[in-house]
Nucleic acid binder design. Structure first.
Lengths: 195, 195
DNA sequence: TGTACATCAGTGAACGCGCGTTCACTGATGTAC
DNA sequence: TGTACATCAGTGAACGCGCGTTCACTGATGTAC
């Protein structure tokens, strides 16, 4: 609780925190095992007791990102009282808000570096947001609010819009715009046009 | 014309070609000066006669990407006889097609690596697609096809949709989908809903 | 037409760097008896 | 309660790698006279 103990206590969590901080500072390129260890005040080898290799660390950071995205921005919508379309629109706004608040983390989550070979924990974490989107689209469809549009297609199109808008925003292509408002009006328009 | 000459002839173009090939093979990470030189069959130092440093090479590759995107996919739409909405929809389809055909190149073009400090040639090349989108939106607006929607917002929302759909597709999130068709129907719906 | 010479476009060796990862180790902790 | 010992979580030195970039160089080309 004072002098640095030999055993850290919760080094895994500390490494993930350090990785997140490095990520937002220097992007994915800054996410080296050595830098993370350094930032956590631990020897270069210590992370190997918690992560098989660099790829495992990167995947764990991304998985934590999906967990936060779902918990902070999407989970509440599943049980909200509003009608499905309104919840989808709110979801788009929230999603874009997450991207803007965590640019480097989101870029990592969407990075092709992870698309390579599959990582079990990551796949599980990434599935929650996708499932909540699919459920809302299905609910809207069941309520007759989407005409006869194909649910999987609607979900993909809505996701694409939110994903793209968030990326453009964090890449500096929407200077001065009220991006969350554009997320809402765009999602609304897309759903209306598809229905 | 036969034995490798001391003077290459057009090493700059050869280096850009080699860079493109490396990019599609191994992603941005594979785009090192040494690897490019190696692929072009030239010493590690030769590229420095054509590019100030690695960043300049990367920017030149991206600029070439924007040039191709505009020339192959967008330029013809400016003068096409169809009404503006139809041309915007076709532009979205073409844009997504480009992304799918050139995944690594597109990722580089959209990469934050380039957003850092500005590169004159790159900015010029990137401006052409943006300008053609803006012009089509303005034409649609003038033709009364977009109600009183704000043109800059419509352009950004449409771009976001195409950008996001392309990215999701190349990241493997649209397996089995007819992505260009989704680009069309989504753009159509978005524009209809916004107008 | 010939020659001198500046310039251009390449070479090749070398540097220092941060990286991922290996190896053999050691101190701290927990558990069986 | 005490002790033996397995296991866990850390250390620190060392490796080999590809990289960007520097330096001093050299062969090929083009131009002035």
């Amino acid at each position: 609780m004072s002098a640095p103990a030999y055993h850290h206590g919760d080094l895994r969590a500390a490494l993930l925190d350090a990785a997140l901080a490095l990520l937002e500072t220097g992007g994915v390129a800054a996410l080296s095992l050595r830098a993370v260890a350094r930032a956590a005040g631990v020897s270069a080898m210590a992370p190997y007791h918690h992560f098989k290799d660099r790829a495992a660390l990167v995947a764990a950071v991304a998985a934590a990102g999906y967990d936060r995205l779902y918990a902070e921005k999407l989970a509440a919508l599943a049980a909200a009282p509003d009608d499905p379309i309104a919840r989808l629109v709110a979801g788009a706004r929230n999603y874009v808000g997450f991207v803007i608040d965590n640019p480097a983390l989101y870029r990592l989550m969407a990075s092709p570096e992870l698309a390579g070979r599959p990582h079990a924990d990551l796949a599980k974490s990434a599935a929650a947001p996708a499932a909540s989107l699919a459920a809302l689209v299905a609910a809207a469809r069941a309520a007759g609010q989407l005409g006869d549009a194909e649910p999987a297609a609607v979900a993909l199109q809505l996701w694409a819009f939110a994903h793209g808008l968030g990326q453009l925003a964090i890449d500096g292509h929407a200077p001065g715009a009220d991006v969350p408002a554009l997320a809402e009006s765009g999602a609304q328009a897309l759903l209306r046009g598809l229905g």
